[in-house]
Amino acid sequence: MLKYILKRLILLIFTLFLVITATFFLMQIMPGTPFNNPKLTPEMIAQLNKAYGLDLPLWHQYLNYMINATHGDFGTSFQYQNQSVGMLIGQRLPISAQLGAQALVIGVIAGLFMGAISARNKNNKIDGTLGVVSTLGISVPSFILAIILLYLFGFKWPLFPVSGWGDSFSESVLPTIALAVGPAAIVTRFVRSEMIEALSSDYVQLARAKGLSEKEIVNKHAYRNSMIPVLTLIGPMAAGLLTGSTLIENIFSIPGIGQQFVSSIPTKDFPVIMGTTIVYALMLMVMILITDILTAIVDPRVRLQ
């Protein structure tokens, strides 16, 4: 097991290297320059390019970036003066990660419950209602939901603050819910279909023939077996949630990292593009690794090697 994890971590570093390299050169294909403020004179732009090392040949820039990156220096943002990318991400990522983690936990737990309830009531009214709710949850965009939540619980019945971060837990309630509904709906539908399959399997028939109650069957046999495919769904979902959501963070004025993913691209803020890409790639790979380890724990047929 330990050997396997070590092997995966080495592979992860190699993949990260490829991601960095590809992103670095792909960025250069984008038209325009980072310094396109009309007030800047050509001399000033040349000076800026020199200061950030953008006047060097591309291979040299790449080499510099790689050397600095291995020392933990990911450059300085072009847009946020004197903010190193490391600091920028270090301040903002934990906020997004906390919000994402809350949404993930709530979404997955709600999905597991609703999916199982749906499956056990297959094709009756409860299943039908949950089916409509989960379809809505998937199809209504999170920002629409955020606005509805804001109107209902921030304005009509002002139970929670409408914006801000870090002063109290109640500030995180509405954005967490807005973020959690989509994943909850996806997990619900997935668990439902997996659970229906498990409940019609031969080993559940055998469990019934043993005289176990439906509740015992679901808890002891069906859940564990339907969790195996659900885990593969949750891994990438976690990576997406933990790295923040531009829209939700904007609506609730949360100083998370979500916005940097988007705004760094049109402004050609190269170091920030690189930084956020590395964060996302790393997060995704770590989550997939965790998923694989969890799958091996849940499913004895899977051996990690």
Binding site: Y203, L206, A209, K210, R224, N225
Partner: peptide, 19 residues
């Protein structure tokens, strides 16, 4: 079930809980 009347199933490859 399982106590007074028990059953042996047809397909042993799928009748046991794999987990």
């Amino acid at each position: 079930r399982g106590n007074e009347i028990a059953m042996i199933f047809q397909d042993p490859m799928t009748s046991l809980d794999p987990t």
